[in-house]
Design a protein around this nucleic acid. Sequence first.
RNA 1: GCCGAGGUGGCGAAAUUGGUAGACGCGCGGGACUCAAAAUCCCGUUCCCCUUGGGGAGUGAGGGUUCGAUUCCCUCCCUCGGCACCA
Length: 1014
Amino acid sequence: MTDKRYDHRSIEQKWQEYWLKHKTFSVQNPESQTPSNSPLSGGEKKKPKYYVLDMFPYPSGAGLHVGHPEGYTATDIISRYKRMRGYNVLHPMGWDAFGLPAENYAIKTGQHPEKTTQDNIATFKRQIQSLGFSYDWGREFSTTDSEYYKHTQWIFLQMFKRGLLYEKKMPMNWCPKCRIVAANEEVENGCHERCGSEVEKRDLTQWMFRITDYAERLLQDLDELTEWPEKIIAMQKNWIGKSEGIEIEYPILFEEAPDDEFVDPNIRGTNLPYDPALKEKARELRNNLTAPERKLWFEVLKNKFFEQLKFLRQKPIDTFIVDFYCPELMLVVEIDGDSHSEQEEYDAKRTEKLESYGIKVVRYTNAEVMQNLAGVYDDLFSVVEKRKKSIGMTQNPPTPLNRGAEAQPLRTREVACDSSPLVKGDLGDSSSKSIICYTTRPDTNFGATFVVLAPEHEFLKQYLDRLPNKTEVEKYIKDSVSRSDIDRMAEGKKKTGVFTGLYVINRLNDKKLPLYVGDFVLANVGTGAVVGVPGHDLRDFEFAQMMGIDVIRVVVGKDGDISPITRAEQVQEEAGTMINSEFLDGLPIMTAKEKIMDYLVEQGQGEKKVNYKLRDWIFTRQRYWGEPIPLVKDEEGNIYPLDESELPVKLPEANTFLPTEDGQSPLAKIPDWVEVRGDVSPSGSVKLSSSGQKKFFRETSTMPNWAGSNWYWLRFMDAKNESEPWSKTAENYWGPVDLYVGGAEHAVLHLLYSRFWHKVFYDMGLVHTKEPFKKLMNQGLILAEDGQKMSKSLGNVVNPDEIVERYGADTLRMYEMFMGPFEQSKAWSTGSVEGTYKFLQRIWRLFQEKEIASDVCPGKDFQKLVHKTIKKVTHDIEEFKFNTAISQMMILVNAMQKLEFLPVNGATKFVKILAPFAPHLAEELWQSVLRKTESISKADWPEWDEALTQDDEIDLAVQVNGKLRATISVPVDIAKADAFAQAKQQENVQKFLEAKEIIKEIYVPGKIVNFVVR
RNA sequence: GCCGAGGUGGCGAAAUUGGUAGACGCGCGGGACUCAAAAUCCCGUUCCCCUUGGGGAGUGAGGGUUCGAUUCCCUCCCUCGGCACCA
């Protein structure tokens, strides 16, 4: 008997060297053009491919965390398993090495980030290699290699040329600590996810990626990702945040402003005398226009259909208040109700009096306005023309805007709008303003009782002076803008706001809605204005309660409650039937939503709109340690892409890595690099040369660290390609990634950005699939022994180097797989590590101490166990259930230990299935003990005989009334009657059947017999 | 608040379509070997009760469906992860 101890150190070192030396895990791309000298043999060429990818690490100074090997071991098991199953496996590793820590370290110590990065990569590589992963190191690269980032820059240029990038000045997330702009995805609860300090909003100009152009596709194609965790799908859906609704226009009712504010006092008709007592009355009328007045006003007069002509509403003249008055033309437009004699007489007198001032009066009836607005318009148009002539206004003849068809009422607003339709109408004309509100629940619009604007709303900026409650509003805006998002959140969800003094009109029911400012309305959501339906939206309800605004019920829920809504619990948001809503009454809310949307669109009061929470991606960073952006500006500020021949744009040497406080990259402080000369080529790109005609300035921002990781999986397919990022041949063969494994923290960052770029590549014809990653798995977090997150400050960090030194790589791999379900987070347990180590020792001793016999019949039970184990381990690997695969192997090992000899057949099979988990030990047993001459990676995965996985004899459970009373050992295929007969003979069963009547006998073959008695 | 994943011995955890709950491992108890210890091997180990056999309870709580529920349905509680005034 040999007495060799299980010496993990020498075994692991020996085989790691062997694998490297023999290039055991290097894979070649199929060379389509040279079949004869292709590194792939004819047989290999026909092998199906399998691409297994880890999320490549950022090589931090802290070295490998025990969390890293968890994912890496899983992918390694899959890789080794797939190889043995005959796949051509691509399993690469590289470094995502641009990023803040190296740079911050550089700022602190002055050490160049390049140096830090190289050191860290060396450490990471050594640590990863010490774990015996089967990577093809021939494909290794770092995103910081200029040979790599030259392609990243090339991709940037292509995207720039496709119009996917634009420069924009807007409030950006600025982290004052890191002195860097962060993408929305990088801000958590108002804090920078990197450093945890609070971000500010700063107006900065940055390059933005039009990821929103792909919002719909990013959402739709999630359906294709059937092998992704539901959790990630849900998070991405949520982040994209699609909602379907409508933008509704609410015309603003301005209080009367002094005439001279609207109309040039030099105009003859401006200063007509009037009774000052009428002023108050006119104001009131103005705020309560009749429906026809409103229609004529909003759809014709206020909208400047008569160019340059200003109409005033409810204007006091003499002792009258006229409906509409145009001072320039001295023209009055009146709308009359159904005429009766008294009224006619009065009107005639009034007309006479007005005409004595030189005023022309035209009259239309309510019915005309309501039913034939086009006719009214035509008539008014000719009146205006004549009037102009008679008054002597001949130049600039008024041109009517586009009108609808003759019989149609006029469409007066074009509802299609610019990108941020905060306010409708020309800013010069205050009397034609509307507030646009986005809502997903227009069905409840009959219940609207107020409108709230975000404090940042454009309307407030431009019309502050015209607000009756100017002082209060101004103060409120100042207060809320000065508070950060965090402050606003810290105050809970308590609603605050102030009344502007203005009203808007809900044209659905001609109701006046008070217009408020409130900071619960967010400027960048929807249109920055919300229509308040307090009966059916909790937030609106809270606001209404705070402000003392009416609540109207327009939905009856399941509970049938139709009482006035006074408590938050009564606020019905989800489902129900419409009431108090005129033509919507009785409809379920979803039907009502469709109906009213169609109605509002038809009436020209709104436009359907799909909204996404997803914002464009802020792409530039004010940092040194990132890919320089290959753009230049000329002295006029025009932007040009650099010519592709200029790539890579390498990072210049720098003395300081500290970004400026005003949001500039340290690159901006290197004038020799920033200022260049060159010429614009016919294609519009710039070629640099010292003799160039023009002066240019380089873009000094760099790319975010997501850029490099946004296409790296494609580079691995063709890592040595110098002329292009990857060849189509390579992508055609290897793509897409079959299995992608990493932490769930990248759910909406890396994984969303990568999907975005991949779709652009797809549109460019550079890849043949819409999605980059077929199957995605997230490893669970590994917590410290105390159940807390591992952290330096808590001193509970487990160093993988120490574990490898003491127990070996195989133990660490095996232990991490045995800890529990792969996707679940779990706490470290040193005790269990030792248990796993003992298991490997037991295997070792088994092969050292027992004679391996080829001619010994091991017995049928053992043979069955071997086949069962192969079956279970195979299934479990496929399903990522490594923990139960290992327990099954433990069961087999326990059984082997009880045998006197090791049957060579069973032992060989066992070593094969052990190989993906503990490759060093398996390779040692394979080559040194079983005397095989080739690496176990080249061996075939063992098959199992299904018949041998079935038991002949089973323990049948016998129940009485569902309670277990006995178990009987019977042949699997026992006849039903025999099963019952044997079961009844059991003493303990009889005890429970005595003096009872059997009402039912249940037999589930292979499982149970159950007697139901009474 | 919403979305997702969970809640099973002292601990990590198992359990095809509803069919013997707790496989496997750690820990613990007992034993063998040893002068002794370590290592190794063997036996036991959900809890409670009589203790040869057994009996009762038990998978976060409470209901329901079923001959039978960790598994299916309803209500609720707790933990973790994500989003968070998205109109």
